[in-house]
Simulated scan of single mutants.
Amino acid sequence: MADIDNKDQAEVDPADMEDVEEVEEDETGEDENSKARQLTVQMMQNPQILAALQERLDGLNGSPSGYIESLPKVVKRRINALKNLQVKCAHIEAKFYEEVHELERKYAALYQPFFDVRSNIVKAAYEPTDEECEWKADEDEELTDEMKEKAKLEEEKKDEEKEDPKGIPEFWLTVFKNVDLLSDMLQEHDEPILKHLQDIKVKFSDPGQPMSFTLEFHFEPNDFFSNTVLTKTYKMRSEPDESDPFSFDGPEIMCCTGCTIEWTKGKNVTLKTIKKKQKHKGRGTVRTVTKTVPNDSFFNFFTPPEVPENGELDEDSEAVLAADFEIGHFIRERIVPRAVLYFTGEAIEDDDDDYDEEGEEADDEEGEEEADEENDPDYVPKDAAPPAECKQQ
């Protein structure tokens, strides 16, 4: 048997042996490449490694390349000239926004007659004609004349069975309740008051005066306060900050002022009375003390935090003012011009559609991620209650 093996080895051509060795080396190289690819795939599937890579990449984004520092002094001088030009452009942009404000004032005067009619219809000061009330909805196109007549008779029968309301009841309250930004401010005790809200108007500053706008909330006589109009004024600035001119991005609200609400005694919903028991340390006797403390209410909107002369605010006041500015802009730019569409909910659907178009992909990815997390037996929800020792800290 050994002789046969030796004979077989003797008959093998040396060139063939070299080929075999080369093939074996190539196969070994492919195995190593395959293992490397598998290792890379495994690493990229590791969330901790991916997070570390992402953090590293985020740190690189926006970091200076060092190119500017390496430039000769003469080139840096020219860059400074470009920056000075940019400051001049910012001042021209400020003038542009001032003219935009003038256009807003001009067109506000053109809109106002229509808003006045809207207000009169809402508060039953004007009854629109049949022609003004005619509205052809999309679904009406598919209805036959017979179906339309039947629907009209049924609608008239319903109207006969109930009282004839005046105007459009709870118009503005419904608008507020339909908009998340405003409904978050509403409390149950605010609703009876807002049923008396008849109109919201926007008034712009006069020509030549500092840029500002005022929101006017018009109320019918009620048992809660004697004011017929509550106001909120927002003062804006449309000029670059000398200390940071490149941060200019259009007019910004600098401060806002509310008004004094003349509450009827016992009707002030921005305050509440609480009773607190106090125990005397020496005698051990207990007494009940009545205190008046602030209460959550939409009407706190008319008493915003005051901005000190130095402009410095604590974090809570800054957060309140930031939200206040957002609400003021939203009422001015969206609610007042399109109130009926927020009353019916159509404007809300349009807002949602706009959001879905921009955020649909992100939402899908988030949903997939949440599904993966829920299927993971080791997954702990972010909002899970912390351990007791964490709560005590």
Rank of each mutant, 00 (worst) to 15 (best):
D5T: 02
D8L: 07
Q9A: 15
Q9L: 10
E11L: 15
P14T: 09
P14F: 01
D16A: 04
M17I: 13
D19S: 03
D19H: 04
E24M: 09
E27A: 07
G29S: 12
G29K: 07
N33Q: 08
K35F: 04
R37M: 15
L39Y: 03
Q42P: 06
Q45Y: 14
L53M: 13
R56P: 02
N61T: 13
G62N: 04
G62T: 05
S63Y: 14
I68L: 13
R77T: 15
R78N: 02
K83T: 05
N84R: 14
Q86M: 13
V87G: 01
V87Y: 07
C89S: 12
A90C: 04
H91Y: 11
E93A: 09
Y97K: 03
Y97N: 01
E99G: 08
H101T: 02
E104K: 15
E104G: 10
A108N: 10
Y111W: 14
Y111E: 15
P113R: 03
F114T: 09
F114S: 02
K123H: 07
A125I: 06
E127N: 00
P128H: 12
E132M: 09
E134R: 05
W135R: 06
K136V: 04
E139R: 05
D140H: 15
E142D: 13
L143V: 03
T144Q: 05
T144R: 01
T144A: 01
E146K: 06
E146Q: 08
E146M: 11
K148V: 01
E149R: 09
L153A: 14
E154D: 03
E154Q: 09
E160P: 04
K166G: 12
K166P: 07
I168R: 05
I168N: 06
E170Y: 05
F171P: 08
F171R: 06
N178T: 11
L182I: 07
S183L: 11
D190G: 08
E191K: 04
L194E: 10
K195E: 15
H196F: 10
Q198L: 13
F204P: 09
G208W: 04
S212P: 01
T214N: 12
L215V: 04
F217G: 05
S226N: 08
N227M: 06
T231H: 01
M236N: 08
M236L: 15
R237P: 00
P251A: 09
I253D: 03
M254H: 10
G258K: 02
T260L: 08
N268G: 00
V269E: 06
T273L: 09
K275N: 05
K275H: 07
K277W: 13
T285L: 06
T292S: 12
P294N: 10
N300I: 03
N300M: 14
T303M: 11
E306Y: 05
N310M: 12
G311Q: 02
A319M: 08
A319Q: 00
D324L: 13
F325W: 13
R334W: 06
R338V: 10
V340T: 06
D352T: 08
E360H: 10
D364A: 14
G367C: 13
G367A: 03
E368H: 01
E368I: 01
E368G: 12
E370Y: 05
P381A: 07
D383F: 12
A384V: 04
A385L: 15
P386M: 03
P387A: 14
A388L: 11
E389L: 07
K391P: 05
Q392G: 03
